[in-house]
Design a protein around this nucleic acid. Structure first.
Lengths: 218, 218
DNA sequence: CGTGCTTGTTACCTGCGGTAACAGCAGTCT
DNA sequence: AGACTGCTGTTACCGCAGGTAACAAGCACG
């Protein structure tokens, strides 16, 4: 049950440190049991009982949001690094970023699953008019917005470019997400191949290809 | 509680019809309460109690899958129609299809939310080696596969074209999904604008745009 | 000393998915 | 007719989840 530290000697640590410990315990459980890990299991892993978790994080959504933020921040940092690494041209940057993302989800699929399929742990977000479909994962929204700002900063898109950049940011992130999710399950090809095909798609190869003979002009 | 038919006079209907009635009741509840509608609520709406639902659908996942199949089939049919409608060129077809999808999710956001954010109702699918992240919605997988076959059928992609088509199918569907989800919440622009920007993206405008002055070569 | 704060506990509530066991009502076979 | 089968429906329950009161111990400070 307990994982290393004994119950007595960490007693006088500050609340922040305690919170961190709890998050790490939760992390272990989520990595082992997936996103549907129960609060009881997490508390047991941390060597305590439920009410303490609730005092620290409010509710399950709070814990999971705190947990997700850590991983999201880490992933985002590595993506930013890939985007800013030295490269010859834009296409190389895009490929490097896609590859970094895919490598991350390939290396730690449990974390990926937790971030992307959170099994609905969310605050109601009362700002919305009605209950229109909330994005499955906050990570997707965040990635989309981040990419949008990067595009708006670095690509000349003329008037209304900000709007275009936002659409593209969310669109590209969604493409990456869906393709990565599918690829992670079916493993239809090597990672490099996937990156290459996706970049081809973004580079307009769909518009350049010929119709097949007998096809109704798609 | 009851919704029209009385308890006695529909007693001798066949099981198929009964199933249909139950699905329609479930539909009403899901439309009202969202994807987290409880089995109790659905049973009450149908004027019966839980065990009957379980006799008909096995478990909650079964009911939700049956429900999802109906809407998925309907959406897929309309998308196919848009894709096959008379059009001058490929770009027009793509725009029409995107617009059809967005119009559908705009018109019935509750259905959309149910299909896309099913809050984890699924069989374990034991075929997979481990428990890598399952696609959030079966609809996404299905759309991706469908689009892949359409692309493979109609676009000349050379050798290895099938693999490319599958990647593109899932990628484009993911782009559409994420952009649509974001747009449905934030409503940053008119539908036609969104369609136009996304098609521009697919048509390679990202590769053609210039770098902004001072930007590090994205 | 008592007061208050934090950390922890046990024991409980509600609501969910899911199931067993039983009741009534057709038709059907002998 | 009467027993058997099969369907529809019920009540009452189980286990488990998230979440919460109520209370107990250790430690600081006036």
């Amino acid at each position: 049950m307990r994982t290393g530290t004994s119950q007595r000697d960490d007693q006088r640590q500050t609340a922040q440190q305690r919170r961190k410990e709890l998050l790490e315990a939760a992390d272990r459980v989520v990595l082992r049991d997936g996103p549907e890990a129960s609060m009881n299991a997490i508390a047991a892993e941390a060597g305590i009982t439920k009410p303490i978790l609730y005092r620290h994080f409010g509710d399950k959504g709070g814990l999971y949001r705190a947990l997700a933020k850590r991983h999201t921040d880490a992933l985002l940092a590595s993506l930013r690094a890939a985007l800013d690494a030295p490269a010859d041209d834009r296409r190389q940057r895009v490929e490097a970023t896609l590859d970094t993302y895919l490598a991350a989800i390939e290396a730690r699929p449990q974390v990926y699953r937790f971030l992307m399929h959170p099994a609905d742990h969310g605050q109601p977000e009362p700002e919305t008019s009605f209950d229109v479909g909330h994005h499955s994962a906050p990570l997707l929204r965040r990635l989309g917005e981040e990419l949008a700002t990067v595009i708006a900063e670095r690509v000349e898109l003329g008037s209304g470019g900000e709007e275009v950049a936002r659409v593209w940011g969310h669109g590209i992130v969604g493409m990456m997400h869906a393709a990565g999710d599918w690829w992670l399950r079916d493993r239809p090809c090597a990672r490099g191949q996937l990156v290459h095909h996706l970049t081809d798609l973004l580079w307009g190869r769909l518009s350049l290809a010929d119709d097949r003979v007998g096809a109704p002009g798609f």
